Amino acid sequence: MGKVQVKKKSMFIDMTAMSDVTVLLLTFFMLTGNFIKKEPVQVVTPGSVSEIKIPETNILQILVEPSGKIFMSLDKQQDMAATLEAVGKEYGLTFTPEEIKKFSVFQTFGVPMKNMKQFLALPGEEQDKILKNYGIPCDSVDNQFKSWIRNARITNRDLRIAIKADQSTPYSVIKNVMSSLQDLKENRYNLITSLKKMSDE
C-alpha cells in the first residue's frame, strides 16, 4: 500500500504583539536607566558598607586619580557655562559663545586656564585623548581648583559636592583636596565608594 502524504500547511505566527512588548521594554529601560558619565581616567573606588545615595541633580563631582590629577563635572549645562565665564574673568579670559557652548556639554573637565582656549579649539576626539594628561591645578602656587569650586557655588547654591577617588590615591593628595574645600568653608561633602558586603559573623 502506498503511503498517504499529508499536505503541509504553511504556518503563520503573528509577531506584532512580541514587537510591541520589545519596544515597550526598550523604552522603559532607556527612560529609567542612568547613563555613566564619560570620565578621562578610570578609578577604582574604595569599598564601604554605607548605602547612602548621593542626589542625582545639583551635583558637583570631584574626580581624583592616583597621581593627584583633579577633574570635575557639573550636571547642568547652564551651571557649566556660567562657571566657566566666572572663572575666566578671574584669570582675565573672555570666552566666545561658541567656546562656552562647547564647554557646557563636557561631561568632565580638568584643564588649566592657560590651556583652556587651546583645548576648546580642538576637535572632540582630540579633547578626549589629551584630557587625561591635564588636570585642574591644586597647589599652593596656583590653586585653580578653589576658583572652580567657589564660582560653581556662587552659580548654584544648591550644589552638593561629591569626591570620587581611586582606592590607591595617596592620603596626601586627598588631604590637599579636602584642605582646599575647608579653606572655602565647604565642610560638607560625600565620598563616593563602591558597596562592600558585610561578612556574616
Rank of each mutant, 00 (worst) to 15 (best):
T169H: 09
S140C: 00
P137L: 09
V141P: 04
S147L: 11
D139T: 09
K146D: 12
S168F: 07
Q167Y: 08
I154T: 12
I154E: 08
I149F: 04
R160V: 15
S140H: 06
W148V: 11
A152M: 01
N143L: 06
I154F: 06
D139M: 07
Q167W: 02
A152T: 01
P137A: 09
D166P: 02
L159Y: 04
I163V: 11
R157H: 11
L159V: 03
A165S: 14
I161C: 03
Q167M: 14
Q167N: 09
I161P: 02
D166C: 05
V141S: 14
N143W: 07
I161S: 02
N156S: 04
P170N: 08
F145K: 03
T169V: 13
Y171D: 12
N151H: 14
C138W: 00
A152C: 03
R150Y: 15
I136W: 10
W148S: 09
R150S: 12
F145E: 02
N156A: 04
A152W: 01
D142S: 13
N151S: 01
K146R: 13
S147D: 13
D139Q: 07
T155S: 12
D158I: 00
Q167D: 05
A152E: 02
I149Q: 02
N156I: 03
L159T: 05
P170H: 08
N143D: 12
S168L: 11
S168Q: 13
A162S: 15
I154P: 01
R160C: 04
R160P: 00
R150V: 12
K164T: 07
Q167F: 08
A152I: 03
S140E: 14
S147E: 11
S147P: 06
T155H: 00
A162T: 10
T155G: 00
S168A: 10
P170W: 06
N143R: 05
R160A: 11
P170L: 09
F145A: 07
R153H: 08
Q144A: 09
Q167L: 10
Y171S: 13
S140W: 07
I161K: 03
D158V: 00
Q167A: 07
P137N: 11
P137C: 10
A165V: 01
D158Y: 06
A162W: 06
S168K: 15
P170K: 08
Q167I: 10
S172F: 10
I136D: 06
D166F: 06
D166I: 04
S168R: 14
I163N: 03
I136F: 12
N151Y: 12
S168D: 10
Y171W: 04
R150F: 15
I163F: 02
I161G: 00
P170S: 06
I149P: 01
V141Y: 11
D139R: 07
R150E: 11
Q144E: 15
D139L: 05
I136V: 15
I149S: 03
T155D: 03
A152L: 02
A162V: 13
S140F: 11
